[in-house]
Design a protein around this nucleic acid. Structure first.
Lengths: 122, 122
DNA sequence: TTGACATGAAACCAAAAGGTTTTATATAAT
DNA sequence: ATTATATAAAACCTTTTGGTTTCATGTCAA
């Protein structure tokens, strides 16, 4: 894994469950590497690499203080994900999605268009 | 890549830019594999594998009609992503985030609490 | 019925991902 | 001064990923 540059984006960064858990831990509070490592069944080196991927995606940053390196969450890049998601939300969240579902099951529902004037005689 | 089961989740599925583009194409309309392939500089086989990953994540489904296999978008699993994201939104979207920003720049802003009675003399 | 088209399936490959262990270095504590 | 702690860096390993090529099969069209 490389030095610092854009080799990993936010989509890749959150693809790994370990990294998502690291983010969750850092959401609570900032922590040194060793403390983060204590939560996982793997070596400190492995966690350090995960932190590097997260760091490349700019989701975390580490600051050296004394002999420790304190990492903390940097949630801003997640807005990119949110934007990406928002495009697809219309497919399940809004009226069209409901309409689409109804149309797809038209045979069962026996759809019937009712004109406003006819609305009161049901 | 395996037969059908949960080998890939939605986080992994969207990690790859090609797959995200495939999703976007299927958001427009359902399409056969060959039509999807036409949008990419890679082989049909490669695209078929990407579709399989998306299919395992249940983001798409393919139906064979005639000699074609028509794929279409299945956006529902993205709700999982949205839920995951919502946890982090409070870190940048809400009042606390704004407050945090102000506090961090307190020296520049020279913060001043103004009581309601004083509001009109500016 | 003979191609052409659309896909499926398998074998293969290089690079990246996700780990490990080992060695070195700086800082803190005794 | 010595030892323990916290990290960094490098070499190495295995599996997965993202792609290829090749061959087989089903379907549509002339």
């Amino acid at each position: 894994m490389s030095s610092s540059a854009q080799k990993h984006d936010v989509f890749q960064a959150i693809a790994d469950p370990t990294r998502r858990e690291v983010l969750r831990l850092l959401a609570e509070k900032e922590r040194p590497i060793s403390e983060i490592t204590a939560h996982f069944p793997m070596s400190r080196t492995a966690i350090a690499k995960h932190l590097q991927v997260l760091s490349e995606a700019e989701l975390v940053s580490g600051q050296k203080v004394g002999r420790e390196k304190i990492y903390r969450l940097h949630p801003e890049p997640l807005t990119e994900l949110k934007q990406w998601l928002s495009f697809y939300e219309k497919f399940w969240e809004n009226k069209l999605s409901i309409l689409k579902h109804i149309v797809e099951n038209a045979a069962d529902h026996r759809l019937q268009v009712i004109k406003p004037e006819e609305t009161d005689n049901n």
